[in-house]
Design a protein around this nucleic acid. Sequence first.
DNA 1: CACACCGCGAGAGCATCGCTCGCACTGGAG
DNA 2: CTCCAGTGCGAGCGATGCTCTCGCGGTGTG
Lengths: 242, 242
Amino acid sequence: MTQTSPAQGIRAEARHRMRAAILDTARAHLAEHGATGLSLRAVARDVGMVSSALYRYFDSRDALLTALIIDAYDSLGETVERAEAEVPRDDLVGRWQAIATTTRAWARADPHQYALVYGSPVPGYAAPQDTVGPATRVTRVLADLLVDVAATAPADGDATAGPSDDAVAAAIAPAAAFVGPGVPRDLVVRGVMAWTYVFGAVSFELFGQRHDVIADDRRDEFFDEELRRLAVLLGLPGAGPS
Amino acid sequence: MTQTSPAQGIRAEARHRMRAAILDTARAHLAEHGATGLSLRAVARDVGMVSSALYRYFDSRDALLTALIIDAYDSLGETVERAEAEVPRDDLVGRWQAIATTTRAWARADPHQYALVYGSPVPGYAAPQDTVGPATRVTRVLADLLVDVAATAPADGDATAGPSDDAVAAAIAPAAAFVGPGVPRDLVVRGVMAWTYVFGAVSFELFGQRHDVIADDRRDEFFDEELRRLAVLLGLPGAGPS
DNA sequence: CACACCGCGAGAGCATCGCTCGCACTGGAG
DNA sequence: CTCCAGTGCGAGCGATGCTCTCGCGGTGTG
């Protein structure tokens, strides 16, 4: 079916390489001019084609953007996966820090690519279903971490159960289903919140909202401090205050 | 000079009203098509002018966008100020909830306007200095809340001082200067983090990242839960666990 | 081997965009 | 009352996304 057999059409391979070339220069343009500044004609020029020819490979500018989004998700996902995998499995705090700092580093390395996936969605553009797969890669890593956290810290999770427990349980049902069974709902909530925070902090930093709030030359240190406190919020063992 | 005396020129007032009319229809277009979909020509058509005439009032499309950004900041600022002012001053948790829930409600009411100010910045567009004033209105409210929190909870702030205390202190120096003296640095950090979180949560929700994570029909309840936990992180008195 | 097929790139063209410039008018300032 | 600054209009420039048609050339088949 989808198998890429060796002699599976020379032509098909050429087409695939052409697509890749287009995506490469498109990615370069994105990094330089941002998403809305990405011009289909300009990409075509750089790749040595006339603009109309590019439509043989991408149905529209939005389709090109979608391909770039999938790429970005994959890039971030792979980067985070690799970084997190290098940390010993029992070092839960280290794994958490690896996920967060790698995400931030990836975002700072190519802000436009980060904005493409985590910024305000392009107007009138609804993310197609193709993006959901790669989009979950980094959250999958985080979810697996939650599973291990739950394993080491035997169920004391429902201790902080508040009055609105039922409503909260229903709210995070999709997230709980994603991380899998055996993880107390409270920990799921903590995980969602930790990830929400990392996203908020990185976006704040990249989108200029931290100007005149955090000293520009101390952002790294402050992010570390944020992570330290987040580890407490996450309920990671050994991350308690002092 | 810049005084707006009663009979200060019929012409000037007509100009001011024209500007307002343009901004109104521009705001309507923004709400419908988003920032990048805002067409200067379309706005001109709707306002009953030819496109070139619009340049008598705004130097460029970016200038129009800037005016809209200032408007949006002011709108959010005023909305939050008003909502927070209605809460008794000694109800610190209530004030915090008012700030956060009002911010979220404002954002949901006009996502494009929210994206304009807190989303990924328009490519190549650097926020001019005119926007910094209105931009601080909502943070000002939050800062004042921090001052009152510091007043009621006498300095125990440095209890959680970690090893990297000096670097963190330097990092949040701008924020500390903004909230004013008398607020322990630890509380400033908590405030920055709380605001960062609210921004992250609202952006996640509006930009579709919470799909398949939080049940769509339970978002309100989950946000309340987030606020409840954030109040603990903020260190608000009376918000302790159970 | 010859032929029909079809993917591919090129080019012209359409509607729209942001923006500039020169023109004509008109009503308030001096 | 007379200017002229301010205003609106229209044409126009370069650029965009996208569509259509055309001709070339490799591919697989009769």
